[in-house]
């Protein structure tokens, strides 16, 4: 489990530390580094000798000549620093912003050293940053053996069909849960054709079959969340960007539960290892649901010195200030920060 991530000179994250728990909800205005913070995890997880320049070219600010990312695990006695000194001054960047001169040896050695820690490197490599696209969720999937859900929700039909064939108990639970979330439906089915397979939902009354492409965007998004929370082997670390998008505010408690199912499987009678979940939001309604879990909320703010992350429960006098007020309303007032700046 990652305890915190320290960023230096990565885009807007000039000198910031993101505290993390099993579940973390990052709240902030647009442009406060929430997406960038997740991008780093993805890039670090993907890095190997061949694509280090991809990391550099994506993250490098022209004003700086180094990027430093430190990932700290809570049970990892050696703090490993994944640090990249780009030495742009000596070598420069080509037109694609790749480091010229191939002098990346020292960084690769640093990475090789880091990836000797198999558990941690596996966690990072498995990281998925989900930002669901209703069109991709509904798309017909060619028959293949791919068992992962794409970050945009693509291959949902594939992973659900796989779940049906390999995990009948989980499959039944998922369908029961679907009925609780969206009572008009009672079963996920599949439409198979020469092109592949696609999802169909069966209505509870009348047993009509509704093709995924005819479902509302909100229904498709809810289905994707539900599916992730029932994956038998989900990624070790997952992020959800603005999970409230397209979801009715009253359904947000289901989204919260889906994320908690991943992070706290023991509370749901599951035996798998907890998944570290990071979500970002702009929704006061979603935030309201975390009234009793202030330690899970991180406020992202930006000032002249760049982005700052602060755990809500560690803000000065926070219990005295908030008391029983709904968090969404409190956040909107601006007293917590994490609201848009104004001239």
């Amino acid at each position: 489990m990652i305890k915190e991530i320290r960023y230096k000179n990565f885009k807007a994250l000039r000198d910031a530390t993101l505290p993390l728990g099993r579940f973390t909800l990052i709240v902030g205005a647009n442009g406060t580094g929430k997406t960038t913070a997740m991008q780093v995890l993805k890039l670090v997880g993907e890095i190997d000798a061949d694509n280090i320049s991809k990391f550099l070219s994506k993250g490098l600010d022209i004003e700086t000549n180094s990027i430093e990312i430190e990932i700290v695990w809570d049970n990892f006695s050696l703090r490993r620093t994944v640090s990249f000194e780009t030495d742009v001054i000596n070598h420069g960047l080509d037109e694609n912003r790749n480091v010229v001169g191939g002098s990346n040896g020292s960084y690769i050695n640093s990475l090789k050293s880091f990836f000797k820690h198999e558990k941690e490197s596996e966690e990072l490599r498995s990281f998925q940053n989900f930002s669901f696209d209703p069109e991709e969720i509904a798309r017909t999937v060619r028959i293949n053996n791919k068992k992962e859900l794409d970050s945009n929700g693509g291959n949902l039909a594939g992973i659900l069909d796989f779940l049906k064939d390999t995990e009948p108990e989980l499959w039944k639970e998922l369908n029961d849960e679907l009925g609780r979330w969206l009572p008009e439906f009672d079963q996920i089915l599949f439409d198979r054709s020469d092109d592949g397979k696609s999802i169909v939902l069966r209505t509870r009354f009348g047993k009509h079959k509704i093709k995924a492409s005819d479902l509302s965007h909100g229904t498709r998004l809810a289905l994707a969340f539900l599916a992730v929370s029932y994956l038998p082997n989900p990624p070790k670390i997952v992020a959800f960007e603005e999970p409230e998008r397209g979801i009715h505010p009253r359904l947000l408690e289901n989204i919260q539960e889906a994320m908690y199912r991943l992070a706290y499987p023991e509370n749901y009678g599951e035996k798998r290892e907890p998944i570290q979940v990071i979500a970002t939001t702009h929704s006061p309604y979603l935030l309201d649901l975390y009234k009793d879990f202030r330690e899970e909320i991180v406020i992202a703010s930006k000032d002249e010195n760049g982005v700052h992350f602060e755990r809500l429960s560690e803000m000065p006098n926070i219990d005295e200030i908030i008391q029983d007020a709904p968090l969404g309303e409190v956040w909107f007032t601006g007293v917590l920060g994490g609201v848009p700046a104004q001239l």
């Binding site: 007032t333 007293v335 920060g337 609201v339």
Partner: peptide, 24 residues
């Protein structure tokens, strides 16, 4: 604050907002 100014959601929220704003 100079930039991230405080803002009410309207009088319907005053019961919750006002104590928070005063205390903060």
């Amino acid at each position: 604050p100079r930039k991230n100014k405080l803002r009410s959601r309207g009088f319907a929220s005053v019961e919750n907002e006002l104590p928070v704003v005063i205390k903060s």
